[in-house]
Simulated scan of single mutants.
Amino acid sequence: MTRWLFLAALLIAFGFAGVYTYLGGFRAADVQQQTTAQPIFLAGRYFSGRVSNEQFGPMFRQAQQLHATGQLRGDLANIYYNDPAAAEDTVRAFVGLIVADTVSQQLPTEYRYRTFAAGQRVVQARIQASYLVAPDKLYSGVKTYAEQHQLKLAQVYLERFGADDQAEVLAVVK
């Protein structure tokens, strides 16, 4: 009986490892420092409050639904104006989609535009992985790079989740 339990546990562990590999969990982020060349436009909604707030989760789902139905064209994206892990679970964020410009699409009534300015020094981390595992890889890559190069981060982060599981974070450098 013990042998069967061991084999079942081993099979489950290999299954989880396979799924994690498929999602891109064993990939490392490509990290570099650069200056943003062009402004990045986002269409979305602003949120300030606790991550556990019941309004925060539906904002992501609404952006995903607007993207899936074609009401808004662009990549799912967020701007975080603080580090939620360091701010004791309080977040200030703009949740929505990166759009090509501010004139070619009709926004839903609750949506507004925000701009991530050009000319900012940023640490950019990119990875091809599912949005389920990408944020941890991207943020740890950004923070490690900043420590190694003695950079201070301004606690402003742009997350982008594009097609084919392409994900990136731009962290503004002070």
Rank of each mutant, 00 (worst) to 15 (best):
M1T: 13
W4K: 06
F6I: 15
L10G: 15
L10I: 04
L10K: 03
L10P: 00
L11D: 01
L11Q: 04
I12N: 07
G15E: 10
V19M: 09
T21N: 11
L23K: 13
F26G: 03
D30T: 03
D30F: 02
V31Y: 00
T35V: 15
A37H: 01
A43I: 01
G44L: 06
Y46H: 15
V51G: 00
V51E: 00
N53E: 11
N53R: 08
M59N: 07
Q62K: 13
A63W: 10
A63Q: 07
A68G: 06
T69V: 04
L72V: 03
R73Y: 10
G74K: 04
L76K: 06
N78E: 12
N78C: 12
N78I: 10
Y80H: 13
A87P: 03
T90S: 12
R92G: 00
F94I: 12
L97D: 08
I98E: 14
D101F: 11
D101S: 09
S104H: 09
Q105Y: 09
Q106R: 13
Y113F: 15
F116D: 02
A117L: 05
R121S: 10
V123S: 04
Q124M: 12
Q124C: 08
D136E: 15
L138V: 00
L138A: 02
Y139K: 07
T144V: 05
Y145H: 07
Q148K: 13
L151T: 02
L153Q: 01
A154H: 10
Q155P: 03
V156A: 05
V156E: 03
E159M: 02
A167E: 05
E168M: 15
